[in-house]
Amino acid sequence: MCVIEPTPVIETRRLVLRAPGMSDLERLAALANDADIARMTLRMPHPYAVTDAEAFLHNVQVQDPRRSATFLIEHEDLGPVGVIGLFEDGDPMPETGYWIGRPFWGRGFATEALEGALVWASRQWKRRALVAGHFADNPASGRVLEKAGFLYTGETRRAFSRSRNAMTDTRRMVWLA
């Protein structure tokens, strides 16, 4: 039987992926309170207040580590830059999702964090496949997923985006260990 540590730490070349804590509350709220970030996610509200960050932290603290893992993405010099999560949802395989704060876009942090999380998922979480999706109007996220080894399935799903308050086309991808 595989024992999953409740707050794993993953280290990559420039990043540490760790459990978010109350000390990250203000930074999370500040980074996440960006309409251009929220509109590319399903669950994130906009505006994103400190109370939203508190609710997020509470949900992370009570998640089942056998079914979900949520990491704060922290740069060695810049501090927290985003969040990445892996979770079991309605699909047969766990799903991953992530966001990076606007000041840190275009620096490869999402790809590096995703690659680190995938290694952890296969070695420690014992997952052999994960799925992900990106909105059809967010090709940059698709490139991140491709760089990390995800392949398009050919499926597009309609899903409700909380910040857009609308159904949105989501292009589905899969990663196989």
Rank of each mutant, 00 (worst) to 15 (best):
P92I: 08
R107A: 10
S122N: 10
T111H: 11
W99V: 07
M93L: 13
E115G: 04
Y98T: 04
D91Q: 13
M93N: 13
L130M: 12
L114T: 11
G90D: 13
A132S: 06
W99F: 07
A132L: 03
G85A: 10
G116Y: 03
D89F: 14
P103Y: 07
V83N: 04
G79T: 03
E95N: 15
R107H: 15
D89S: 15
P80Q: 09
R102A: 14
R127G: 04
G90K: 08
L86F: 08
R107F: 12
A129F: 10
F109Q: 08
F109A: 11
G97L: 02
G101Q: 02
W99T: 04
A121E: 00
P94A: 04
P94V: 01
G97Q: 03
I84Y: 00
G85S: 12
V81H: 03
V81S: 08
A110M: 09
T111R: 10
V131A: 12
R128A: 12
V83K: 04
F104M: 10
P92E: 14
A117I: 02
F87A: 14
G106W: 05
G101I: 03
R102C: 06
G85C: 07
V119A: 12
W99G: 01
I84W: 00
P94M: 01
K126E: 15
G133D: 09
G82K: 09
V83S: 05
